[in-house]
Amino acid sequence: MSTSNKQTADLARRRFLSGAVALGSVSIASGFTLYTASARPKGEPASSKIRWGLLIDTGKCEDCNICVEACKTENGWEGHRGNLTDPQWIRKVGLTDKRTGKKQSLPVMCLHCEYPPCVDVCPVGASMKRADGIVLVDRHLCIGCRYCMMACPYGARSFVHEKVTNQKPYMPRGQGTVESCTLCAHRIDDGRIPACVEACTKSGREAMLFGDLNDPQSAISKRIVQVSTTKLRADLGLEPNVRYVNF
């Protein structure tokens, strides 16, 4: 679905919104809209009718790092210390079943919980969930107390331990605040799919499926009713919007 016809013809505004937005449209034009996602019209807030989600097929997930590298490139996070002070928005976890020895590999990132504990515990309300279910950190408010990191059962969040330079214009990051996977909210708003999903699909593995969990016609919803999916730490009742299959 093209978005250009939806855009307003406000010339003055368009002239001002030169660089980055134009860049975005280029990518749209190159057309990798696997799922029937379209850019939200200008000036419209994210809708609670939509619930973005991911389904990760661990059967198709190989021992590669493509999703992680794609996220790094897209969002510009990179560690320089080589230890646990480095940020990690998405990571590949290798699993070995203690009894059977069966090995698996799967990506873990922010699971964008329906009831996110990080949002509950944040003292200043910086940790927040957008209407469409994306869990974000409002770094204008984040004071860097790290309580959300204590509360997250998935270790999905990173604290920025050092100065950051050369951020992407669409992905501000700064020392002393907490950050995590944004589900590529900037791309979603633009009608594109998250960078990890795109990279995984392009590599031919197709282990990640992105879409609207509220839309029964979406590919992800159809798949979820067909197969049995796993929610990590389902016992906590957080209802993560990122689920796993074949796990």
Binding site: R91, V93, G94, L95, T96, D97, K98, R99, G155
Partner: peptide, 10 residues
């Protein structure tokens, strides 16, 4: 029930 390893905290 699984043994987890990663470049991260797992």
């Amino acid at each position: 029930g699984m043994e987890a390893t990663s470049s991260w905290i797992d």
